[in-house]
């Protein structure tokens, strides 16, 4: 069922949907999509709704601002990792979930990390897909995004997202600038939150994820054979590893 989260002034801030299995004592699974995608494209079409339903999990899926059915502000401040993580925490409030398991992909993993860091106790476990410690924007001409300037590694991602029917290029560029304004750092790390990193073995954006995980107290890594950044998200091995990992529940033990 689609719901709309309002901001402090009563304006729509974000659209989210609740589905999967019937409510249970298990916390819901919050699904956070990647840049240029949305809940439908990133998760629903890739088969995650059925996978979570089959494993008995309730799900909450969001369309991040600038994406899908959510409003599309053109102000980069609305898209910083901190701002978006705060919105995600408000979604958990709205669905009455003191805590949640979180599954992110790409930019959604970056935001899941931020949510776990900024809101201790709200994230029980997290699966971070298509994600690594490298700054995705280090070789990007952020001011030239709308003009299609050569944007390095992220430029190709931006061009693909901007080419989709209905894409709001200005909103996407604002999102990119907001994200880039706060460079990812492995420290501080989420405290007491077990992490599972999943990435295609050909996913360059996830470069260095193994060393990132090795430096954390409770992190595992799964690489998916023959998959890359674009096509890893539908892999059955991703879904089964994620649902199995989340089913382990509270605690740091494996």
């Amino acid at each position: 069922m689609d719901q709309t989260l309002l901001d402090a002034t009563g304006e729509p801030a974000l659209r989210y949907t609740v589905g999967g299995a019937e409510p249970s004592r298990e916390p819901p699974v919050l699904l956070v999509h990647g840049f240029g995608s949305d809940f439908e494209l990133n998760w629903a079409r890739a088969g995650w709704v059925g996978a979570l339903r089959n494993s008995g999990r309730r799900l909450v899926g969001v369309d991040l601002p600038g994406h899908g059915g959510s409003p599309r502000p053109h102000d980069p401040e609305r898209y910083t990792p901190k701002a978006l993580a705060a919105l995600l925490a408000r979604v958990l409030d709205a669905v009455g979930a003191p805590e949640a398991d979180v599954v992110g992909y790409s930019m959604g993993s970056r935001l899941s990390w931020q949510l776990a860091v900024d809101f201790p106790g709200r994230v029980r476990r997290a699966v971070l897909g298509g994600f690594g410690p490298v700054d995705a924007f280090e070789d990007t001409d952020l001011e030239g995004l709308e003009r299609g300037a050569d944007g390095g590694r992220f430029g190709a991602v931006f061009a693909a997202a901007a080419a989709l029917p209905g894409a709001d290029t200005a909103a996407l560029a604002a999102c990119a600038r907001g994200q880039a304004s706060q460079v990812y750092s492995p420290s501080p790390a989420p405290d007491g939150v077990p992490l599972l990193f999943v990435a295609g073995e050909r996913d360059g954006i996830a470069e260095g994820v193994e060393s990132l995980a090795a430096a954390l107290p409770a992190a595992e890594v799964l690489r998916l054979p023959r998959r890359d950044h674009r096509n890893a998200v539908s892999a059955q091995a991703f879904k089964s590893a994620a649902t199995e990992f989340l089913a382990r529940g509270r605690g740091l033990s494996g």
């Binding site: 995608s37 494209l41 990133n42 079409r45 890739a46 088969g47 059925g50 693909a160 989709l164 674009r230 096509n231 890893a232 998200v233 539908s234 892999a235 059955q236």
Partner: peptide, 18 residues
């Protein structure tokens, strides 16, 4: 019916077709 059948990759994303 509705069991996962095939994974496909499009220009934008990967999809699972039931």
């Amino acid at each position: 019916r509705n069991q996962p059948l095939v994974e496909l990759e499009t220009a934008k994303s990967a999809v699972e077709i039931p």
